[in-house]
Structure formats: structure tokens, C-alpha cells
Design a protein around this nucleic acid. Structure first.
Length: 418
RNA sequence: GCGGGUAUAGCUCAGGGGUUAGAGCGCCUGACUGUGGCUCAGGAGGCCGUGGGUUCAAGACCCAUUACCCGCCCCA
């Protein structure tokens, strides 16, 4: 136990990786059906990509990035989130000119230097979607719908999609003002750090877990009361579209998100199985991000879903149907059967059957134990008697049924019975 | 970054100053000829997280450190 994985990172062991494959393949299949093509971007980016987009007031960018200077003197950061790099790539390759709608997906590691906890790691993984270039409410609804379908497909049923609108610049300014007014008395008692935080971004007060903060903001009307007509109309339209699509959601004024680039729509899916971390995913509309990166105005909406968090919730809900099991284990009963066993194994594998065989010359008893432990559905036993008859014993593990089949017919028989 | 808890076998955990550190599960071997699971018998496997200190004596007490867990913060 000399070396350990670095703090906040984890190994996915061979016995658990099927969970990751399940989450990723479920996501890929869903993305495929909605026409989202996969984008792959580098693990690190110029630090500016994040400074220009996620915002100075976000903790993620201001204090949680893995930033270093490379040997060429460039400031580099491991990516703490996926949207800004995705937009950088689109811009760089000219894939989002005005008027063009682009759908893309990604599966990435993210890095944040934070104190690890249940559901919170220094290296985490996300699957995400970006619907780029559309200002319409239908786009927001599409992304939210896919998100909810994703969790449905994984069997996660007790989580709730929460939806809010942060409006645009003008109404948000008015709302910030209202928060500051209502919370002035509360803030006076707070630490300097807290005061600074709220003054930089008053919205952050809304999702505070501090009961005193909750009390202070109780009397503030929801932000949706401040929305301009256009934003109001979009928010209503999204809800209508989601309702039509049979997507369950709740409107939640306390959903504000931690990245500064969001405009209007924001949403999360929450679960109570994640300890202090309640959100399974987060997303929203980011109409200014591409412009912030030096492109033309490109209204867009996206979502990022945590893989580890989905797995935690599925673990606790007992939603796994087990990993990959071998179809068949070939047991060599006598020494002289070695070559025939080997060729039988090759034959089975060429048929696409997951086939295991002992490689250490263990006793037959041991081989059958291995077969049992492996979870193989069938054991094929081959010794001198079978060699003479050109047959094998086919044993259904889990029952004690055993039949003799000719060696020519054995692949077919295993395919039928596995 | 702040506060609290935990660290003993592959896993879950006992042992709380005094010989060679234990249990359950798991693993390996065997119970006469070529048959797994159940049972029984035997066996392997421990820098008692790491470093220092106190003591005749430390797995145990003290300090530090690292990791994990729980809260704050933050969020995937």
C-alpha cells in the first residue's frame, strides 16, 4: 500500500467498470438518437478560455482550477468544466457561424481542486450536451428533455428536475438590487468573505443552506416576477413544451448555478442520495459565452451530467443488473484433451461467445470451481472418453443438468442455452 | 480553504498498555478413480495508514502527517 491514487481521484476497478460502460453507453445511445455528435477536446486548455467565460466570481474558476505554467511559459489549466472548451473548439473550426444550429455531445474528465467528499472528487467525469446556435424555447426544452430521459433510461426515478430562469441583464440587475436590499440586515452580521461573495453575485445567496440566509431572503419575490416579457414568454413556453413531452419538472427559484455565463434558463436534477452534494447534473442557456470567447452572438443551451454521481445514486437504489458474465467455461478433464480443448475454445470465441478456460493446469475440481465463480452459464467438460466419441459434456451451471453433445454441434448448443 | 470523525487480513469489523494480533465473509488445498454450489477439515494471507514521541513494554496513550467519511463552502 505504498502508493495511493492522488487525493480526490479514484480507480475504477475491472469489477466495477461495467457501471461506467452502462452510463456512457446509455448516454451515447440517447445522444445518437437526438442527433448529437460526439466532440473530443483536450484535457487541458489555455487558462484564458475559462477566465473569459466561467467568470471571476465563480469559485470553480477563481480558486479550484488546476493551473500551471508549461515549459513554454503558457498558463495552462486542466478543464474544470466542458462548455467553454467545447465552444472554443467550435469557434476555432468555424462550426458555429450565425444561423447554423449544431448539436454535440461529450464525455470528459473535469478537474477541480476542492476538498473531496461523497460525490465530490478532484477528478470527476461528465457527459454533456450542447445545442448551439438556437435562441428558441424549443432548444431549451430539448436539452432538458434529453437530460430527464437519460436518468429515466438509467432507472433513476426518485430524482426531480428543477427549473428556473435568471432572465437577462436588465431584470437580473433589478433582482440583484432587490436581494441586496432585503439581505442588508442579514449581511451586516456576516463574515467579510460572505459579504464580498454576495456583493459580487447576489444570486448566490439564494441557494445558501444557512437558515439565517434563507430567512433573510424569504420575503424577496421570486426572480421570475422580475423577468422581462420576452424571458417570461420563453420560460412559460419551455414549461409548456416539457409538459407536452410528458417531462416531469418543478419550477425552483433557488436554482441559480455556479457559473457566471448562464442567461435565462437554468436547471438541475437533484437526488437525496448524494449527501451534501445534491445535484446530479446542471445546465442552462448561455447566450453570451461564444461572444465572450470572441465569436459572434450565438445563443446556446447545454447540460453537464456527473457520471460518478449517477453511479452513486444507482448504487444506493440497487439499479445494477450485474456485470458481464462469461457464456461458457471449458474444463479439461484429462491431460491428453489439452489440444482439443484449446481448439474448442477458439471455436467458441470465433462464434462470439465469451469463453474462459483454465491456464494453470489445475485439477478438474478446481476448474469447475473457477467456472462456478466466474458466473459462466455453462461448463463444457472434455476428457478421454469424450475425445474418443468426438463429444463434450455440457453442464448447465446453476442446475445439475448435464448432457452430451457432439463437438460439431456444441457451439450451436451453447448459443441456444446460454 | 474551515470544523468534526475514522484508519487492524482482499472485504466488514473486534481487540483500548503486557507472550507468537482475532472473527465472519472471501481465497487456496483436501474429503480414494473425471464433476462446481452445500457441509466438514486443513492452509495462505497483517510494516495494526505513515513518521516521530511517552513507557521496562505501544496495535492500544500523545504529537504530526496522509487518506477516506460527515458538515461548511462549492458543485458534477
Amino acid at each position: 500500500m505504498r502508493y495511493q491514487a492522488p487525493r480526490g481521484t479514484e480507480d475504477v476497478l475491472p469489477t466495477d467498470s461495467y457501471k461506467w460502460l452502462k452510463v456512457e453507453s446509455t448516454f451515447r445511445e440517447l445522444a445518437r438518437r437526438y442527433g448529437y455528435l460526439e466532440l473530443r477536446t483536450p484535457t487541458f486548455e489555455d487558462t484564458d478560455v475559462f477566465l473569459r467565460t466561467a467568470g471571476e466570481t465563480s469559485d470553480i474558476v477563481s480558486k479550484e482550477m488546476y493551473t500551471f505554467t508549461d515549459k513554454g511559459g503558457r498558463s495552462i489549466s486542466l478543464k474544470p468544466e466542458g462548455t467553454a472548451p467545447a465552444m472554443r473548439a467550435l469557434l476555432e473550426h468555424n462550426l458555429c457561424p450565425p444561423g447554423v444550429v449544431t448539436r454535440m455531445s461529450y464525455i470528459i474528465p473535469i478537474f477541480r481542486y476542492d476538498r473531496p467528499q461523497k460525490g465530490r472528487y478532484r477528478e470527476a467525469h461528465q457527459v454533456g450536451l450542447e445545442l448551439v446556435g438556437s435562441p428558441s424555447a424549443t432548444a431549451d426544452a430539448e436539452v432538458i428533455e434529453i437530460t430527464v430521459r437519460f436518468y429515466e433510461a438509467l432507472g433513476i426515478t426518485d430524482s426531480v428536475a428543477k427549473l428556473n430562469s435568471l432572465g437577462r441583464d436588465e431584470c437580473r440587475a433589478k433582482f440583484r438590487e432587490a436581494i441586496l436590499q432585503h439581505s442588508a440586515a442579514f449581511l451586516a452580521d456576516q463574515t467579510q468573505e460572505m459579504q464580498d461573495k454576495v456583493h459580487k453575485n447576489p444570486l448566490r445567496l439564494l441557494d445558501s443552506k444557512d437558515p439565517a440566509a434563507q430567512e433573510a431572503i424569504k420575503s424577496i419575490p421570486p426572480i421570475t416576477d422580475y423577468l422581462e416579457d420576452e424571458s417570461r414568454a420563453r420560460f412559460d413556453k419551455i414549461q409548456e413544451l416539457l409538459t407536452d413531452a410528458g417531462v416531469k419538472f418543478e419550477v425552483a427559484p433557488d436554482i441559480v448555478r455556479g457559473l457566471d455565463y448562464y442567461t435565462e434558463t437554468v436547471f438541475e436534477v437533484l437526488s437525496n442520495k448524494l449527501g451534501a452534494q445534491s445535484s446530479l447534473c446542471g445546465g442552462g442557456r448561455y447566450d453570451n459565452l461564444v461572444k465572450d470567447l470572441g465569436g459572434s452572438s450565438t445563443p446556446s443551451v447545454g447540460v453537464a451530467m456527473g457520471i460518478e454521481r449517477a453511479i452513486i445514486v444507482m448504487d444506493e437504489a440497487g439499479l445494477w443488473d450485474g456485470g458481464t458474465k462469461p457464456d461458457v467455461f471449458v474444463v479439461q478433464a484429462t491431460e491428453s484433451a489439452f489440444k482439443t480443448c484449446q481448439s474448442l475454445v477458439r471455436q467458441l470465441r470465433s462464434q462470439g461467445l465469451i469463453t474462459l478456460v483454465d491456464i494453470d493446469g489445475k485439477s478438474m475440481k478446481s476448474q469447475l470451481r473457477q467456472a462456478d465463480k466466474s458466473g459462466a452459464a455453462i461448463a463444457l467438460i472434455l476428457g478421454d472418453d469424450e475425445l474418443a466419441k468426438g463429444s463434450v459434456q455440457l453442464k448447465k451451471l446453476g442446475s445439475s443438468e448435464q448432457i452430451e453433445v457432439s463437438i460439431e454441434a456444441v457451439s450451436q448448443k451453447v448459443l441456444e442455452l446460454r
